[in-house]
Design a protein around this nucleic acid. Sequence first.
DNA 1: AAAATCTGTTACAGAATGCTTACAAAACCT
DNA 2: AGGTTTTGTAAGCATTCTGTAACAGATTTT
Lengths: 229, 229
Amino acid sequence: MRGTLIAVVEDETSIAEVISLYLRRAGYQVQVYHDGQAALNGMERQMPALVVLDIMLPSLDGFALTRWLRDRSDTPIIMLTARREESDRIAGLEMGADDYVVKPFSPQELVSRVRAVLRRANKSAQDSAETPLVFTDLHIDPLSRTVIVAEQEQFLTAKEFDMLWWMARHPRQVFTRDQLLESIWGLSDYIDPSTVTVHIRRLREKIEANPSEPRHLLTVWGVGYKFEP
Amino acid sequence: MRGTLIAVVEDETSIAEVISLYLRRAGYQVQVYHDGQAALNGMERQMPALVVLDIMLPSLDGFALTRWLRDRSDTPIIMLTARREESDRIAGLEMGADDYVVKPFSPQELVSRVRAVLRRANKSAQDSAETPLVFTDLHIDPLSRTVIVAEQEQFLTAKEFDMLWWMARHPRQVFTRDQLLESIWGLSDYIDPSTVTVHIRRLREKIEANPSEPRHLLTVWGVGYKFEP
DNA sequence: AAAATCTGTTACAGAATGCTTACAAAACCT
DNA sequence: AGGTTTTGTAAGCATTCTGTAACAGATTTT
């Protein structure tokens, strides 16, 4: 994957620079953040394909950031830790990371871990292409193309299902109508964006308890729609 | 497999929670036990499809539990251990674990191991199935290539049988016409997808009580067909 | 407060898709 | 080779879906 975006969250400037240099040389795009809050703001706008994260951070520590990330995506995380601790407590906290690297480390090793984790993530993303998505009151099964809302099967049309599947697989991400047309319809010929509006309405009718106060398919005024798990 | 039950036996609450979270997100049902004795009692009542098992446990350790499990079923086991010792791994595998994960590990990785082990287990269970498929009003016997609908034998042609067999072996999964052509006809030369339509119709004529309101061979509009048991 | 956007709702017609039937080609069996 | 069954194709009909337009209701801006 050329030009894949990687976020590096590290307060020590010298370390951040070295990491950044090596990753760029390996063909990645790199975005460096020097504290947790900045990282959060930046990633809100653009989610990277992978995060390299120092546990010890000013303003918002690595664990908090991990939880925040895990809440909204499966973006892989590689943690940097100062010292190796065998205790189960640390083990538990480190969980949620996809790999971890102990300082001091060789930048070359970090690069190969990044490669490995991205490769693995890609594979499991493919796996999940046929794995059902499960939310508290909503099951979406791509193989049987069935949707279950509150224990009750709902029959969606082809476009409705494709749309829900796409949005549910990218939770919390806002899509403009044009983006949805492009990713779900493909860009063969021009289709009026208002078509999306109507489809959203039809979907709400089927999967929302109260379609006029949707809990999953939310309107983002002036922009488009997003799926909230 | 939708809603497959997985038991997690792990005394460390934080770890158990993370594992549980990830497995649920992957679409599994999860039952957590915090010690070996509780696990034993619980599984006595309901046997899970797979067990994630920490070796170090209070009240009844992982090895004992493994032995207990192996005594009464082939339920796959994935072992967790804090130690990186090779000897544990070998002991565990010999004991009857199907896979082995060392802490600290990425929960994402555990999920894909679970998938892999279940896939393997399913396959070997299915392979042994040159045995007939039996549904309430429908028997399909691959050896004699006979089909019995409501106590009455129906004579299918070769293609009809192959098609029914394939679809019945993948219940609820939606296939496009092209997928069916590829998996049943093979892709030697081009065959018109509408051929599938006609075969479906002929099959319905033979196995459905009311062919125009099929209960088994269902149309998925805009996509293809699926077999509903 | 009015104007200007943007979104929600509804109805409808054309497009897309599937069903049914009939027929011809291919394969199969004596 | 002749007859029989199976299999693939084609065409018209029936059904379902989908895009659009028009209007009503919200929300923001002026």
